[in-house]
């Protein structure tokens, strides 16, 4: 059912103040139907930009992004995205915000109402359906946004640091729920995160991006059966290896700075 996502030679350049800023350069990536891909990388290395291109929000780039050979020309309900910010509509209640995603879905009114209730329950906000965004905490708002992204059951789901604002317990719960839904419905998923543990726990594959210009630096296959245990030795080992890679990359991109005289205070390693 789901399609293969094929990203070929993608380059994206922004212009800031007339100056060309390369955000992505030569990104090649193939995501199989039903695959769970997680993306790591330093701030500013183009992760959000990549998701926006896949979502079809920006079509001015070099290279091609296609689904089963069909080039992506714009947004579609088959591709859902949860943005880095909640982006809730301030004049709508939490429930109405979630319902917004079903507005153009071919469902009966009753089915829509049920889906909205179910997804509010999924993110633990059943009793906040009538709350307005300004009455929610940052993490609660982000959970409403996650519900809005899931309620439509897209074929491809793009998530931009969706769990960043959550406490550890809620985060673990939502990771498991996301994994369950993703497995049940075989949703092709691309999840951006800063949390290496989250990346290895959820991903079939973890890609590590490097900055300036943004590119795929390393790919790690996480070949472990699900359901996984968070404390599994093999996960812990993968995590250590990926952390090492991340440190290497950040060391590389920081090298020009290191040629300057280093005082005794700055001599400590950046990543403790």
């Amino acid at each position: 059912m789901a399609a293969t996502l094929d990203i070929k030679g993608v380059e994206k350049t922004f212009s800031i103040d007339g100056r060309a800023v390369p955000a992505l350069a030569g990104v090649d990536l193939k995501v199989e139907p039903g695959e769970f891909l997680t993306v790591l990388g330093a701030s500013g290395c183009g992760k959000s930009t990549l998701l926006r291109l896949i979502a079809g929000l920006d079509t001015s780039y070099e290279g091609s992004i296609s689904l089963d050979g069909q080039r992506i020309r714009g947004p579609s309900l088959d591709r859902g995205i949860v943005f880095q910010e909640p982006r809730l509509f301030p004049w709508l209640t939490a429930a109405r915000n979630v319902a917004l995603a079903l507005e153009n879905a071919p469902l009966a009114r009753e089915a829509k109402r049920r889906a909205v209730d179910e997804h509010l329950a999924l993110v633990g906000l059943s009793s906040f359906g009538n709350a307005y965004p300004h009455q929610l905490s940052g993490g609660m708002a982000q959970r409403v946004a996650i519900a809005r992204g899931l309620v439509n059951r897209p074929e491809i789901l793009l998530l931009d640091e969706p769990f960043g604002a959550l406490d550890a317990l809620t985060r673990a719960h939502l990771q498991d729920e996301l994994q369950r839904i993703q497995q049940d419905e075989q949703i092709t998923t691309v999840l951006v995160t800063h949390d290496v543990e989250e990346a290895v726990y959820l991903g079939d594959r973890v890609i590590v991006m490097a900055p300036r210009p943004g590119r795929v630096a390393h790919v790690f296959d996480i070949d472990l059966p699900r359901p996984r245990r968070r404390t599994d030795d093999r996960l812990v080992q993968q995590r250590a290896r990926i952390l090492e890679t991340l440190e290497e990359i950040s060391g590389e991109s920081a090298r020009p700075l290191a040629t300057q005289p280093v005082g005794p205070l700055e001599a400590r390693p950046a990543l403790a």
């Binding site: 929000l57 309900l77 982006r87 509509f89 153009n104």
Partner: peptide
């Protein structure tokens, strides 16, 4: 940002106006 959400949810002209 909200206009972009509208694009993702494939709002038509009327929905963009009223929503």
């Amino acid at each position: 940002q909200l206009i972009e959400v509208g694009r993702v949810l494939t709002f038509n002209r009327r929905q963009r106006l009223t929503r």
